[in-house]
């Protein structure tokens, strides 16, 4: 099979629907290692990928007033066991624009792979930007994933990010997202990860609520078992009047796994407020016994509880 077919096969296994890449009304970008193997755009969306030695540089612009009707689909990955992929994204969502992106990152055979993503994102006024990223890894854990994003959000805008890594071994994972939110704008950042074996998970999500009446929610749902280790740093700073934020971190551990949550809550304006909740522990006994009292075996009951949390 050619790289394209192999990527689509892995993409489908990751939950993607390959037919989207054949629809001319749907913008997309498929990148295998440092090769662009599929790309198309729609009116009002500028999507310019440029191959580099180790990956690609992408410029993504949604022009002023343009609302992209269909989700923009991205697929990044490496099919062989070894390799490096560095994705540099410069995205600009202009005033009154709207776009949703769905990125599938597929590394089904990873033994020695590095996947780095570095994004600089600017969201204008009255704009909406949603970025969903789903990872699909193999069972060896031989992968290092390093996503980094610096995001600026203008006035009256909305930023949503959803990251999930629930299929296959995590490997070594180090996410670092930082966002600055201006007047009346909203930040909604979620990460869901399931680690096992000797996976290492480190997440830093930071939101700076600098605008009046800005809002921020940082949400993490992490499950670790075997010898996996997770460390979640949720940092929310509110420095403007009526800015409000909340940090919500739940980590479930099984076996010899270890989990750490570090909420950093910083308020520098007397009219601002940030709250946080963090819970770390084994799967709730009452939840498990409730499902067992319906006839499920303990293992299955735990799967349902953890699966629901990560859904």
């Amino acid at each position: 099979m050619q790289d394209y077919e192999l990527m689509l096969d892995a993409y489908a296994k990751a939950g993607g629907v390959p037919s989207v890449f054949k629809d001319s009304n749907i913008a997309h970008l498929i990148v295998h290692k440092n090769k662009v193997i599929g790309s198309s755009s729609v009116k009002g969306l500028i999507l310019e990928p440029k191959e580099t030695e180790t990956g690609i540089d992408v410029v993504l612009t949604v022009e002023k007033g343009i609302k992209i009707e269909n989700i923009v689909h991205l697929c990044f990955g490496i099919i062989p066991q070894e390799g490096i992929q560095e994705i540099n994204i410069k995205a600009r969502i202009e005033d009154d624009a709207r776009v949703k992106l769905f990125a599938h990152c597929v590394f089904p055979n990873a033994v020695k792979i590095i996947h780095k993503m570095e994004a600089e994102i600017e969201i204008g006024n009255n704009a909406y930007y949603e970025y969903n990223e789903v990872h699909f890894h193999g069972e060896t854990g031989g992968i290092e994933v390093v996503p980094k994003a610096r995001i600026k959000v203008g006035n009256n805008s909305h930023l949503v990010t959803n990251f999930s890594l629930l299929h296959g071994r995590v490997g070594v994972f180090n996410l670092d997202y930082e966002s600055e939110i201006l007047d009346n704008s909203t930040l909604d950042m979620t990460a869901k990860i399931y680690g096992y074996g000797d996976d290492r998970i480190k997440i830093r999500e930071a939101g700076y609520l600098r605008g009046r009446a800005s809002r921020g929610l940082l949400k993490s749902r992490i499950a670790v078992k075997d010898n996996a280790i997770s460390e979640i740093i949720n940092e929310l700073t509110a420095s403007a009047p009526d800015a409000k934020g909340h940090v919500d971190c739940v980590e479930v551990i099984q076996g010899n796994a270890q989990a750490k949550a570090i909420p950093i809550v910083n308020v520098t304006n007397e009219l601002a407020k940030v709250t946080h909740e963090a819970a770390i522990g084994r799967v709730d006994k009452k939840q498990v016994q409730t499902l067992m009292a319906r006839g499920l075996e303990e293992e299955k009951a735990i799967d349902i509880v953890v699966g629901g949390m990560l859904k």
Partner: peptide
């Protein structure tokens, strides 16, 4: 089976 006095809640 048993219906708990304060039933558990299940996210997701």
């Amino acid at each position: 089976t048993l219906a708990w006095q304060e039933p558990a809640r299940f996210e997701g």
